[in-house]
């Protein structure tokens, strides 16, 4: 088992392999490795990004709790071992590449919002996300308004009217208004990493 894990880690760090699996070219993956190194050594220099390091990168604080940051971290951590390795980092960021298909972005967003991870989004999950949003921002909404927003959400997205949004309904819902519903799913910086970030070196190889 140990050999298998070691091999997997090496493969994940191979820029050519990652380039073939993502929307990044080899130079961009090497540039991303510089960002990864910075994030993964911000608290403990161990070659992986912990949740605290991820929060530090996002918010400038490792203490700030956020439901959405937690969910994004969980989705980046595809092996679900509590840390983000470089391969996981690159593959997850690829979804946020401007060239990634809308359906792929919508799928990631669906999994992000499917808090209970049961394969559909229910009213309780939507309410939990709105409450988290209010808790994490200065926005104040009364209970009745929150319920109106949830009603509106399901009127628009739950086309089958069964009280939950399934992946098919979600894709149709997003396709009707992608600019509003997927606006956080594209990171413009990823379009041309190597010129946007001249401080990122185009190095000969990715070190261990």
């Amino acid at each position: 088992m140990g050999c298998c894990c070691t091999k997997q880690r090496v493969d994940h760090k191979d820029p050519a392999v990652l380039a073939s699996q993502t929307y990044f070219n080899i130079s961009e993956i090497e540039a991303l490795y510089d960002l990864f190194k910075k994030l993964s050594s911000s608290i403990i220099h161990d070659g992986v990004i912990s949740k605290e390091e991820f929060q530090l990168g996002l918010f400038g604080s490792s203490e700030k709790r956020s439901l959405f940051a937690d969910r994004v971290f969980q989705l980046f951590d595809s092996k679900n071992d509590g840390v983000i390795e470089f391969g996981e980092f690159v593959k997850a960021l690829s979804v946020f590449h401007p060239a990634a298909p809308q359906a792929q972005k919508a799928d990631f967003a669906f999994r992000l919002y499917d808090i209970s991870q049961r394969g559909f989004i229910e009213r309780g999950e939507v309410r939990e996300m709105i409450l988290a949003l209010l808790n994490e921002s200065d926005l104040v909404l009364c209970h009745d308004i929150i319920e109106v927003i949830i009603d509106k959400t399901f009127e628009e997205a739950d086309s089958k009217g069964d009280g939950r949004i399934d992946p098919e309904e979600w894709q149709e819902f997003v396709a009707r208004n992608p600019s509003l519903l997927l606006r956080n799913m594209t990171i413009p910086y990823l379009k041309d990493l190597t010129t946007q970030f001249p401080s990122f070196k185009l190095t000969s190889g990715i070190e261990d």
Binding site: L39, A109, Y113, L133, S137, L139, T153, R183, N184, I187
Partner: peptide, 25 residues
Amino acid sequence: KPVSMNAFELICRSQSFNLDSLFEK
């Protein structure tokens, strides 16, 4: 204004998860 939005539009507009900040420091 928020009442005219659905929940997901509200979440997106609030920038609750904006990964741009990973690249801004």
